[in-house]
């Protein structure tokens, strides 16, 4: 039991950022959108011309560019904030989307860079109205394949990922609970401060990678 919690925890963090991505073809189904996105990000990471600390900025920029096409950061921000989203101004919303996207980049891209050797198997897809779920299995180091489900929403740009779920643990719900707890104590201004501090904490060791 503990093993799996740890495993799913680890993988939650490993692959959360993988939902970044998705070349947008209007008529393409969820899996057709997801596949090139994930592959595109992995390709950038594996590109020897972009490897190393000196190329970090360029590499991250390319990854996030692919990510922003298949990954709906605004939808994520909206859902992760819940009711607070309705209470804040348009400017604050834009600021929040920026901060949250930066957090995801900081938190997960570095991790992805360490685990670029994995293989993704697209197992199943389910569409229900404007929502879709794509089940993938991630194989790494010969371990038992890990199920990672991408939850997607059809918007003006086609299918975009807004959540992913590993063994019942939703990445969005995880952040939502954390934000809720911070909002209760420190209000929105406090949350922004915590986010800014967190992002700043990555600049040091992030550069070391």
């Amino acid at each position: 039991m503990k093993t799996s919690i740890r495993r799913s925890l680890l993988l939650l963090f490993l692959f959360s950022f993988l939902c970044a991505g998705g070349a947008v073809a209007t008529a393409a189904g969820p899996t057709e959108v997801l596949r090139p996105t994930l592959q595109g990000m992995i390709d950038v990471i594996r590109d020897p011309g972009l490897a190393g600390t000196e190329n970090k900025e360029e590499r991250r920029r390319k990854i996030m560019e692919i990510a922003s096409r298949g990954f709906d950061f605004t939808e994520m921000s909206k859902r992760v904030l819940g009711r607070t989203w309705q209470k804040i101004s348009q400017e604050e919303r834009e600021q929040f989307v920026r901060l949250f996207t930066k957090l995801l980049e900081n938190a997960y891209v570095g991790k992805l860079e360490e685990y670029s050797g994995q293989e993704i198997i697209y197992k199943d897809e389910r569409i229900k109205g404007k929502k879709a779920a794509v089940l993938t299995f991630v194989k790494h180091n010969g371990a038992a394949p890990l199920p990672v489900s991408y939850v997607m929403l059809k918007n003006g740009k086609g299918w975009q990922v807004y959540d992913l779920n590993i063994e019942g643990v939703s990445f969005l719900r995880n952040y939502r609970d954390q934000f809720k707890s911070i909002l209760r104590k420190k209000k929105y201004a406090g949350l922004v401060k915590v986010l800014e501090e967190k992002n700043a904490s990555f600049t040091g060791d992030g550069a070391a990678q």
């Binding site: 799996s4 919690i5 799913s8 925890l9 939650l12 063994e167 019942g168 643990v169 939703s170 719900r173 995880n174 609970d177 954390q178 809720k180 707890s181």
Partner: peptide, 13 residues
């Protein structure tokens, strides 16, 4: 909070 959420949702699943 993060650990609590992961634990509870994992067990519920």
């Amino acid at each position: 909070v993060s650990m609590r959420q992961v634990y509870l949702d994992y067990r519920r699943k």
